[in-house]
Amino acid sequence: MFAAAKTFARAFVTLGAVAAAGSAFAQSGEVNVYTYRETKLVQPLFDAFTKDTGIKVNIISASSGLEQRIKSEGERSPADVLLTVDIGRLEDAVRAGITQPIVSPALDKVIGAQYSDPEGHWVGISLRARVVYASKERVKQDSITYEELADPKWKGKICIRSGQHIYNNALIAAFIAKHGEAKAEEWLRGLKANLAQKPSGGDRETARDVAAGKCDLGIGNTYYWALMATSDAQKPWADATKVILPTFAGGGTHVNVSGVVLAKYAPNKANAMTLIEWLAGEKAQHIYADVNYEYPLRAGVAVNAIIAGYGTLKPDTLALSKVAAAKKAAAALVDKVGFDN
């Protein structure tokens, strides 16, 4: 037992050393980023940022709960900025009280009002659209509306991932915001009736299933298709499918925003502001376009050629805050119609 106790004590000393090493963040020349975007995805951006500014970027990436982490950490939180995807999450962060206004006339000039918070608590950096992957062989039409996805002519022909996935949740929320809950329910029931299989997998599996003939239409995000088209192993799936940019009847294509918030207790606020402005700058926006295959938000930065091949994006003009406001109702609707069951 005593030997065990000694080992235990030694382990704790080691732990202490690890702990001390862990606390050495919050120095000048650094910025701490909490991100819902994958490390691999944002690393090229941050490498370029460090090269430009000399500011080192420290990262934690996670899939959920970062708002709660920042909130729990309170005034001692090392978080300077939170990078996230989805308007709902951006507004959640604001509601959680972990943000402070981003005051930057330079940003206001390059990012449109549609894609930033009126109070300045979040700023959009890039866009992605929720589109249709259609079989080249079996689908002749080159345009479609979201409403048409519920048309019985597609019965047994549509594949989609879980209705509770954040991407679909936002699409359904947008439908509710545009048409009201009753219409949205009818539409969702129609879409459910058209599914070739139970919602499962991810957007990539959806494209695979369209390519293999399991279904004719799939619903997915713009960049997945570009990633497939540029991967040797996945190119056949991209080759067998085409991307159609759907629109709401009388509206535009559903887009969602990736954006950034400035943490309330950001210990490196000046560096954080430098980073945020840099992310909206030309170099970063080109990386978003050509490495991540997203739509850059800065006017004048061209989209990647593959993405441009889908056609000209006409984003729906519905205020994103209205989409965020309808997200709970969208989740409830998915439950109510048993979309995932």
């Binding site: 690890v18 702990a19 862990g22 606390s23 950490e73």
Partner: peptide, 15 residues
């Protein structure tokens, strides 16, 4: 002096 998040901000949290 304050020492910051020595537990929540370090590997100790994971252990």
């Amino acid at each position: 002096a304050s020492v910051g998040l020595v537990v929540a901000g370090s590997s100790a949290a994971l252990i």
